[in-house]
Design a protein around this nucleic acid. Structure first.
Length: 666
DNA sequence: GTCACTGATCACATT
DNA sequence: GATCAGTGAC
């Protein structure tokens, strides 16, 4: 590959010393200002650095920051990049537009959704709300098909979502991926139409709608498309391997005019095919934007050579061959280990004891991570960590936002913002004594009929048996009405005051839950409007799991990180433990049948292993019973099982009782 | 109509 | 371990 002459002549008075901070390939990616650019960036190859420097370079070059659009996988990622960029250059970088495709879609649609016949004051529903809506519609269908069970709300939501994200009909998705539901296909299709109508009626959109509606808007409203292209003259997309076809179309619609589009990704780290991501987007990018310059970043700055040897050996097993081959100058270091333990308890013990040793070697807890395939895989370890008093933070899995008490409080606020939000109405009404589905539905109907927002609640005639309960709710809304929407913190405080007695009645652990809610109101203080708070909670909910502190700064140097592999994307630690490297756990049981799914598990294992800088341990309990399938799991993960001893050292622990004393080799 | 209980079924990753 | 459908007491 021929690269630019990285001569200083390019940058006579630059505030940033690009040449000495970047290798030639990175430098080329940073200095190529115009035209489409595809950066294939291997794990640990300085991808974030490259994007950061490129943004800084554009700003320094006089491009107005607000005409740069940085699209990332999570908003945290874009904030972090722009923060680094600000440190590198100056405050101008703060004005760069950054976020996820979903948040970008919301920003455009909230102003222009009317152009394609969608109400602009819509609310965004998260996955579990979407499922509730589907569940309500599903009931009728179930009574129709008494003979056999109808798919669950979760399965239905999955099917609908895949249909949107893969750009295929529901029929095709069912036939391909859920063949056992073939008989229900007509009902599923009809239910999908009802679901769409129901969302429209209640003025809500789900995640997929955001992308779908944005694509439609840009396609149908030429003026808006042209204006967006004009506004965002430089577009950067991170993690391009995890975008789907719809996102690629959106990118093309905004980027085709000026073609100043840079995408960064790594096909071997694509781990979101299950939700419709298509890593072939990377291969197709040059077709979509002819004249694309392709740059490969192959030097790895993260890991030692022995770790890189193992990760290269893992990804080499992919049927689909990847052209990159990573290298490092960081020779030496410990050979990664596959540690076989008798059972789960001993797995947890070994991790804890090894973490203790690492700390004695001077490695802080914040530099260590335990990764796993599924959130529940760490339950036993969490118990042991608590027992030992080792602080940890868990990322992924059950979230703060999903806990009932948080959803309850938010539902009150959402009704205030969008009185057509049926899900939230039913939720808050059914919190009250003697109000079940029927009464709640009647109250909701009255609200819609009266058509004066939540005031409709005052107009309905209630049965005397529930009068007292409803009066309490009315009082709350009267109080909320007196508070301006621009003070979400006060709104939250008022709702909490109302909700607290309810929580005390419902939950025996109410003190903890109320503390959570106080955190929530503290978060609300930071917002300028109720609507922006609610949109953020749907699009970018706080990441920490429910029982962790919500103080925001989760990268605490004195806490061990427990994370799903998916949530660990893009991050790195000095030492990484991969739990349950056992066939049937990781790779997942459900992926063993289909070649395509298995290949994604392989990439997932690759992502897990490439998080490590210096030390890497795969843990494999020798035996586990899988209750779901009734099978016995006793084979190490196939991706690492057969790697030669010189790449992956075997450690066998025997005769442990799970609580103490055993041999450990380093 | 509501609510609290039962037993059967199915289980991943997430914007 | 959660979800769902069905039951019977208030």
């Amino acid at each position: 590959m021929k690269h630019h002459d990285p001569s200083r002549r390019f940058l006579p008075e630059s505030a940033v010393d690009y040449e000495s901070c970047l290798n030639p390939a990175q430098l080329e990616a940073v200095l190529t200002r115009e035209g489409p650019l595809l950066v294939v960036a291997g794990a640990g190859s300085g991808k974030t650095r490259t994007v950061t420097y490129r943004v800084a370079r554009l700003v320094e070059d006089g491009i107005p920051p607000s005409s740069i659009l940085l699209l990332t996988f999570t908003r945290k990622a874009s904030q972090e990049m722009l923060h680094r960029c600000t440190e590198l250059l100056d405050d101008r970088c703060r004005r760069v537009a950054g976020g996820t495709f979903h948040s970008f879609a919301h920003a455009v649609l909230r102003r222009h959704a009317g152009r394609i016949g969608f109400p602009e004051g819509y609310a965004i529903v998260d996955r579990s709300d979407a499922e509730s809506l589907i569940a309500a519609l599903r009931k009728e269908f179930h009574s129709r098909h008494r003979e056999r069970s109808f798919p669950t709300k979760k399965t239905l939501a999955d099917i609908f979502s895949r249909s949107v994200n893969k750009g295929r009909d529901v029929q095709d998705i069912v036939l391909d991926e859920y063949p056992h539901l073939g008989e229900d296909i007509e009902s599923i299709v009809e239910l999908q139409h009802r679901y769409a109508a129901s969302k429209m009626e209640h003025r809500v959109v789900d995640y997929d709608d955001l992308l779908l509606l944005l694509e439609r808007l840009l396609r149908e409203a030429q003026d808006i498309r042209a204006k967006s292209a004009e506004t965002y003259r430089y577009i950067l997309v991170d993690e391009y391997q995890d975008t789907n076809i719809l996102q690629a179309k959106i990118l093309h619609l905004i980027g085709a005019d000026h073609r100043n589009v840079m995408v960064v990704g790594d096909d071997s780290q694509s781990i979101y095919a299950f939700r419709g991501a298509n890593f072939e987007n990377i291969m197709r990018f040059p077709e979509m934007f002819p004249g694309t310059r392709i740059i490969k970043l192959e030097e790895n700055y993260r890991s030692t050579q022995p770790i890189l040897d193992v990760t290269n050996a893992i990804i080499a097993q992919a049927r689909r061959k990847f052209t990159k081959h990573l290298f490092t100058r960081n020779a030496g270091g410990m050979v990664p280990q596959l540690v076989q333990t008798p059972n789960e308890k001993s797995q947890s013990r070994w991790v804890i004891d090894t973490v203790a040793q690492l700390r004695r070697c001077g490695i802080r807890l914040g530099r260590i991570a335990v990764l796993f395939r599924a959130s529940y895989h760490s339950f036993d370890l969490e118990i042991e960590l608590n027992r030992e008093g080792i602080a940890f933070i868990k990322v992924g899995g059950f979230k703060f936002m999903e806990s009932a008490h948080v959803k309850d409080v938010l539902a009150h606020l959402r009704v205030l913002a969008n009185p057509y939000d049926r899900i939230s109405w039913l939720r808050i009404l059914m919190l009250l004594d003697r109000i079940g589905p029927k009464t709640a539905q009647a109250a909701y109907d009255a609200v819609v009929r009266v058509g004066r927002g939540h005031e409709g609640l005052f107009a309905g005639k209630d049965r005397c048996i529930v009068r007292k309960e409803l009066d309490g709710l009315r009082d709350l809304f009267r109080r909320l009405e007196a508070i301006p929407r621009s003070h979400p913190g006060e709104l939250g405080t008022a709702v909490l005051a109302y909700y607290k007695p309810l929580a005390e009645k419902m939950y025996d652990d109410h003190p903890r839950r109320v503390r959570d809610l106080e955190q929530l109101t503290a978060i609300m203080e930071r917002y300028e409007s109720l609507e922006s708070f609610l949109a953020d909670m749907a699009l970018e909910p706080p990441t920490a799991a429910a029982d962790n502190h919500l103080t925001g700064e989760w990268r605490d140097p004195d806490r061990l990180t427990l994370s799903t592999v998916h949530s660990a994307k893009g991050l790195e630690w000095d030492a990484v433990f991969v739990l349950w490297a056992l066939d049937g756990r990781f790779p997942s049981q459900y992926a063993l049948e289909k070649e395509k799914d298995l290949e994604e598990e392989l990439r997932l294992m690759y992502v897990a292993a490439t998080r490590a800088r210096e030390r890497l341990y795969f843990l494999c309990p020798a035996y586990a019973f899988d209750r779901a399938t009734g099978t016995v799991l006793n084979r190490p993960a196939r991706f690492v099982a057969d790697l030669p001893e010189n790449l992956l050292e075997r450690v066998y622990l025997e005769g442990m009782d799970g609580s103490s004393g055993f041999e450990m080799r380093w």
